[in-house]
């Protein structure tokens, strides 16, 4: 198996503030990889470096192509869907329009994708005319995920999907992600505060600290690691 996504020595900063100091990581095709770490470690910025929503330097390769000079729209067109923290739904538009935008890069009809998405989120079908901003927080998170599925990405970047969600919904969300991964081979890079949950769903993980990779390994290895247990799993 070759890596679908490879980061080599990636740096990023917001204005004068350096956030990433040389991150290297790899995501195998068909795997789910979790990024863990404390607040401010650079987890979100790592995803943003991939999708091109932050200024970055270093080498980023996706499916054999260099991403490090591309802007977000070009990256999205290559088949990367980024569900940002805080959902990023178009709250002024309807549910249907949000989904339609998810399939923006696809030519022709998105009917098959829509039907597939409605099997996971049946309620979306009934509420397609509703304004997205009037959905609850959890529903908007689901909509953001559904929109990413309509995109039919090769790589899904998920940022803090559990933020502000009820535990039942979080479990449901991770179940769906896992299911898509198993059924359709969707590759996922997920940033998650809830390390327990993330390592359950993921095949491998990276632990970031202060903009560097502090630890890397399979989920089992990380779960067994003492420092990870103490800092992130809490036992």
């Amino acid at each position: 198996m070759t890596a679908l996504l490879e980061l080599e020595d990636v740096e990023a900063r917001y204005g004068p503030v350096h956030v990433l100091h040389g991150i290297s990581l790899a995501v195998e095709e068909g795997s789910v990889v979790a990024v863990l770490g404390p607040n401010g470690a650079g987890k979100t910025t790592t995803l943003r470096a991939v999708s091109g929503t932050v200024r970055r330097a270093g080498r980023i390769r996706f499916a054999g192509r260099a991403l490090d000079r591309l802007g977000p729209a070009a990256v999205a067109r290559l088949g990367v869907a980024h569900v940002p923290e805080g959902r990023g739904t178009f709250s002024e538009l309807t549910v249907w329009e949000n989904l339609r935008l998810g399939g923006y890069t696809r030519r022709g009809s998105i009917q098959p994708e829509l039907e597939r998405v409605f099997t996971y989120f049946p309620w979306l079908s009934e509420r397609r005319r509703q304004q997205a901003g009037t959905l609850s927080g959890g529903e908007q998170q689901m909509l953001a995920l559904a929109r990413a599925f309509v995109h039919r990405p090769r790589l899904l970047l998920l940022d803090e999907p559990s933020l502000g969600l009820a535990p039942v919904l979080v479990a449901e969300l991770f179940r769906i992600v896992r299911e898509l991964n198993e059924d359709e081979g969707l590759t996922v890079l997920v940033v998650e505060q809830n390390a327990h949950l993330a390592l359950q769903a993921a095949d491998a993980g990276y632990v970031l600290e202060a903009g560097r990779v502090a630890l890397a390994g399979t989920s089992a290895e990380l779960r067994a690691d003492d420092s990870v247990r103490r800092s992130y799993l809490g036992y």
Binding site: S51, T53, G71, P72, A73, A76, R77, A81, H82, P84, G88, T89, F90, E92, L93, E97, R100, L101, G102, Y104, T105, R147, H151
Partner: peptide, 18 residues
């Protein structure tokens, strides 16, 4: 639709490939 989205939320629009 893409034009409306780009005007409303440029950052999110770029993420879906607009």
């Amino acid at each position: 639709l893409a034009m409306r989205a780009a005007a409303l939320r440029p950052a999110e629009s770029a993420l879906v490939g607009v």
